[in-house]
Amino acid sequence: MRLMSGTDSELTKVLSLLTHERQARDRGWWSVLARYYTPEATIQTSWFDGTAADYIEVSKRVFEQTPSNHRLGLPVIDINGIRAIAEMPMTIEMRGTFRGVETDLTAHLRMLHRAEREGDAWRLDATVAIFDHDTMTPVNPAATVPFTPEDLQGRRPSYRMLSLWMTERGYTVPNDRYGIDRPADLTALYNDAYTWAGLPQPH
């Protein structure tokens, strides 16, 4: 973690923002979750791309259908005055029924956050998921997850299982999300984020 300006207490505040935001999402504390975003905040995940307000509304339905847990890694936080960039490693865990078989889905990714300080409070202004890889396994080792190679044709390797899982539940998962299989897109994404924050380019 680093500061271009400010104090270590600002790093702690941003870290608290990141962890409390995911806690509220996983617990279904929707009114609390809304406090962690600016009015103009946007979010892009595999299945959603839009405003934070709309994300909360759609997340209520996803939460009822397939609860998930977000396991967080230690973030990298860079602060410049009232703006910050935070990269948070994350593992999403879902357990549910896939074509009649109880199944665990695990997706490995990182979230790239833009945060802004208003007074003493930090809030998220933009969040983008960057996908690494994912797996789908039966809860019962003796069972078999019922999918075929054709199910994965045309799906991105960085989030193909998650894409299949959400599509089966009626959600549209576009093929243009950020993932490690498209490094040029990631370079542009990071350059834009660090420019927004007035920070040196990360490479």
Rank of each mutant, 00 (worst) to 15 (best):
W29Y: 09
A86V: 05
R177M: 08
A143S: 14
Q153V: 14
D54N: 15
A84M: 06
E118F: 12
S59C: 09
M166Y: 08
T66K: 05
Q23I: 11
R114N: 07
F131R: 09
D185K: 02
L74K: 15
V58L: 13
E64D: 13
M4H: 14
P75W: 01
D132A: 04
Q44N: 14
D151A: 03
N175T: 12
L199G: 13
Q153L: 11
L74W: 09
T187C: 00
A86P: 13
H20T: 14
R71L: 08
P146W: 02
T172L: 08
T51P: 15
I56T: 15
V145P: 08
P174R: 05
K60Y: 03
I79P: 08
W30R: 08
L15A: 12
D151G: 07
A129P: 11
N191Q: 06
A188K: 08
H203C: 04
V139Y: 09
I180M: 06
E168I: 00
I130H: 07
F98W: 07
A129G: 12
D120Q: 13
G119H: 03
A188H: 08
M136R: 07
P183G: 01
I43A: 01
D176Y: 08
V14P: 06
V128F: 04
M161L: 03
M1A: 15
E10M: 03
H203E: 13
D54L: 04
